[in-house]
Every structure is written in C-alpha cells, then in structure tokens.
C-alpha cells in the first residue's frame, strides 16, 4: 500500500512538473525582430464620409452600412460593422472619429484567450482564428475597449473584430480603410514611423492639434494611434484607460501558480506525515 502511495506521488510529481512546464509565464507577446505595423488616424482630416466603413464591409464580405454618423449618437461596432465613424460636437466644431480595434501591443484579449484564437501577430494586427476559438467570450470580458463582438444569434458563432486587414497585409496590400480614405486621414506604416509622423504633425501645426497622441501609452500602447484638435474625452475616448498593459493585471496571479504548485504539495505532505505519524499503518485500510 505504501508503495502504491509512493508511486502515485512520484507520478503526481511528474504530472505536476509537466503542468508547470507547459505554462509559459510571459503574458506579453514573444519578442520579435519584425517591426509592428500600425495605423494613424488623424481626426482633423476626417470628414465623416464613411468611405472606410464601405471599404471595410467590402473587404470583409459584410453588408453595407445602413446608418450614418450623427452628432452625439454613439454607434458601436457590431458583428457586421467592424469599423464605424461617429460625430462629436466640440469647441472646435464637428469632429468625426473612426473606431475599430485598437490592436494593442499587449492585448488583453490575447492574454485572456485559452486557445490562442485571439492572437497578436508579430506583424502587429490582432487576429481571431476560427479553428481555435471555443467561444468562451473571455476576450470580450477582458478587452478594455470592448472590441470583440460575438454572434449571439448563430449556432456556429464567430467573434468579429477588425483584423487590420491581416489577410490583405499578407498579400502585400494595405488595410482597405487606409486605401479608400479620400482625405488621407488614415495612414499605415510601422508603429515607430507613425509615432514620428504624429509628433511631426503636432510640432508643425501646434495650433491645429491637441498635444497628445492617443494610443501611444494607453493600455501599454496600441497599434492604432489618434490625433485630434481637442482633448480626447471630448471626442468619445476613454481617457481613464490605464497606461500599463492589461495582461499585467493577471501576471501576479499567474506567477504565484508555480510557487503554490511546488510549495503546497510539499507542505501538505509534511503535515500529513507529522499528523499521521504512527497510526498511518493501521488506519489506512479503514473505509
């Protein structure tokens, strides 16, 4: 009997180690030499023409948008509208803001996903992979911008969100919305280039821009950067979003897992040995 127990504990140790081993502790994407692609949206240039919305619908085989931006009407992205333009009445007049996934540098959805269906690619876009997703919607719970949308009315639901036209990028093309913007309000490039470009625009026309790049620091930095002529809370941005990345929030817990996995069994075994010192042999067989 005691041999059984010892063998079992041995197996247990092996299983335990393999479980810890399988658990890579980094909540951040792997280090890569590829520079991340990003998008810069200059709201001072946006006219609210919805060309991006139509281009997005076409590129993603979705129905054409039926509504249009109205001042102070908050249109949210849906499973069929991966990007929307909203209008805001501000001190600088009407401002239009395009919304879609922020493609965070360290996305909460990626860290949340237990099947790696939500995935931050090395190139920058955050994509969703149909064959991996089990539809748990933990990405939706975790995303601070509430971007992933779930098809509640389908028995075979997908998660829908902007992918920064990852498929088009693979074929050497740029995102559909960038390509179809008539006023060059949307720019595409590496994140580093675009940050430089954004700073250049602010410094060249300090009267025209509010001196802030939304997305540079938010949620640990995002792949979509915004410029505006007014403070960002005036045009519907959540300016209370934390500056650290969201996966940082669970890091402490995940780091404690291997410690507990090693320490608990040892301590429990020690306790067991000390409390069951002499009696273990004769009481072992009683039900």
């Amino acid at each position: 009997m005691s041999i059984n127990r010892r063998n079992f504990l041995k197996t247990l140790g092996v299983t335990g180690t393999s479980i810890i081993g399988a658990r890579s502790l980094s909540a951040s994407p792997s280090v890569s030499t590829v520079e991340m692609k990003a998008v810069l949206i200059d709201t001072t240039r946006c006219m609210g023409c919805q060309s991006c919305e139509y281009a997005c619908a076409e590129a993603n085989d979705l129905p054409e948008p039926e509504d249009y931006p109205e001042v102070d009407v908050n249109r949210a992205t849906t499973t069929e509208q991966l990007t929307v333009v909203n209008g805001y009445d501000t001190s600088e007049g009407e401002i239009y803001v395009k919304k879609q996934c922020f493609h965070c540098n360290q996305p909460a959805c990626d860290a949340a996903c237990l099947t790696k269906a939500m995935h931050k690619t090395d190139d920058g876009p955050v994509i969703w992979r149909e064959e991996k997703c089990m539809g748990c919607r933990y990405c939706m719970v975790s995303c601070p911008f509430e971007v992933p949308k779930f098809e509640y009315d389908s028995p075979v639901p997908s998660i829908r969100k902007c992918t920064m036209c990852y498929d088009r990028q693979q074929e050497g093309e740029i995102p559909a919305c960038v390509e179809n913007c008539p006023n060059e309000a949307i720019a595409f490039g590496t994140r580093r280039e675009l940050l430089t470009e954004a700073r250049r625009r602010i410094s060249e026309s300090p009267d025209q821009y509010y001196n802030y790049i939304y997305g540079e620091k938010e949620a640990g930095g995002t792949g979509v950067l915004y410029l505006a002529s007014v403070p960002f809370e005036e045009v519907g941005f959540d300016t209370t979003v934390q500056k650290e990345s969201y996966p940082e929030k669970t890091k402490g817990f995940l780091y404690s897992v291997p410690s507990i996995f090693v320490l608990w069994p040892m301590m429990l075994l020690g306790l067991y040995k000390s409390t069951n010192d002499k009696e273990s042999e004769d009481t072992g067989d009683q039900a």
Binding site: A27, A111, A112, L114, K132, G135
Partner: peptide, 19 residues
C-alpha cells in the same frame, strides 16, 4: 459558443498558457 473546440486547450494544439 463553439463547444466543439473545447478540446483545443486540452490536447495541446493550442495552449493559451498566459490565460
């Protein structure tokens, strides 16, 4: 939503270990 993929995190073809 997609329960048929529930095996993904189990059989090891998709380990979302940071989750």
């Amino acid at each position: 939503g997609r329960p048929w993929n529930v095996i993904n995190p189990i059989i090891g073809n998709s380990f979302g270990t940071s989750s």
